[in-house]
Simulated scan of single mutants.
Amino acid sequence: MKNILKKAALLLLPVAAYFCVFAAFEPNNYFGLRPETYSEAPIARLKAYGQAPGPRVIIGDSRLAHFDMQQVEAVSGRAWQNLAFGGASLREGVDVLNWVLEQNPDLEEVVFGLSFYTVTKTYDADRMSTLQKTLDNPLAYFFNLEYNVNMLTALSERLRGVPGGGSEETGDWSWPADYTGPDGTVYPLHTRLATYPAALLSRCQGWALNEEQLARLCTAAAACRARGVRLTVVLPPMADVVLTEACEPYGIPRQMQQELLPRLQGWSLFYGFQVLDYEWADRPAFNDDKQFFDGFHLDTTYGLPVWTEQLFTDIG
């Protein structure tokens, strides 16, 4: 029996060693071994919030994921935690909001991102159920292939001396190099911005409101009102080229401005939340070529700090 146990222990040693390496280098700080993480993955942000839930959160997709949180605190006078992540659908945003309401009985304030891109039935990603299982089960996290690849990438970068850090979406664009496409086409805007609308077309075709998820948002807003949680729904700005090349050809401005936005304003009165619309009604006067990194994402050096100041001043 002792020999069997010894052999079993020897067999488990490599697994234990790998687990130690995994825990030390996985970039999402799942086990809370580091003071903070630069990872913007949903698992990282949700796990950090679950470990230390604060009273104010930001929920949305990548357009709300890259705020300089020190600037946010300086402008608003209050500390926030950012739970926004890339590609978050309206369904996932509502899921995160409901999860936060469950996690934190002392929640005070929520900024919730919404846009024409997330309210349509043509985009309805659903990852929260899987995320919740992983949040509650370390073994599920450890045996997840994606997170193992993330760990190995982070370990490789550490060994090569590559510095860690958050996403930087910024550029000092040079003419003509940054304005010329692979086929030699010269664009009036830098290439990344000029070609961005083409990536949105599949989601704009057949655009229609996702009534099921909008109803869930109303239910969540009612829960916020009942709990005394201040909710602000934010429609982030988009570049002019997205409006003209991705939205207008499919009649999206009319549907947003005549169908959804009046309803949203009515809901805001009934459910007691604030609406800040920088997508249609109050579009900031940004220089697209200078202040947008692409059609959706503001340049983190030249655009996002300006909008951060505006947004959190308007929130008050």
Rank of each mutant, 00 (worst) to 15 (best):
P237E: 04
R230N: 07
Y278I: 03
L214C: 05
D288H: 08
A239W: 06
A220G: 04
Y302M: 12
G164D: 15
L260W: 08
A177F: 11
Y187E: 08
F286D: 05
N210C: 12
E211W: 09
P236R: 09
Q274H: 14
E168M: 14
S202T: 10
E245P: 01
G228S: 02
G184K: 05
L209W: 07
R203P: 00
T301R: 15
G166L: 06
V234K: 04
R225Y: 11
R192C: 07
A223F: 09
L261D: 09
G184Y: 04
G266C: 11
L214Q: 08
V233G: 02
A222I: 06
E245Y: 09
F273Q: 01
D240W: 11
Q257Y: 07
A208G: 08
G303P: 10
L193M: 09
T232N: 08
A198N: 09
R192K: 15
E168H: 14
D289E: 12
L201S: 01
A222H: 05
A194K: 06
F270D: 14
A199C: 00
R283S: 01
H297C: 02
L235E: 04
V234S: 03
R227C: 08
L231Y: 01
V234H: 06
G228A: 04
Y271L: 11
Q257G: 10
P197W: 13
R254Y: 13
V234M: 08
A285T: 00
A215R: 11
G166N: 13
V186G: 01
W173C: 12
L193H: 01
H190G: 06
A285E: 14
W175D: 12
V229L: 08
K290S: 13
R216V: 06
A194I: 04
H190N: 13
P262R: 03
S268A: 15
W175T: 05
Y278N: 04
Q291W: 07
S202D: 11
R263M: 10
C247H: 11
A285Y: 00
R263I: 08
R203Y: 15
D178P: 00
P305F: 15
T219P: 00
A281M: 09
D299N: 09
Y278H: 12
S167H: 13
P188E: 14
E169W: 15
L200N: 03
D289H: 07
Q258H: 11
A199P: 00
D178L: 12
C247R: 06
A239H: 03
N210M: 10
P253N: 07
Y271N: 02
E279K: 05
F286N: 06
P249N: 13
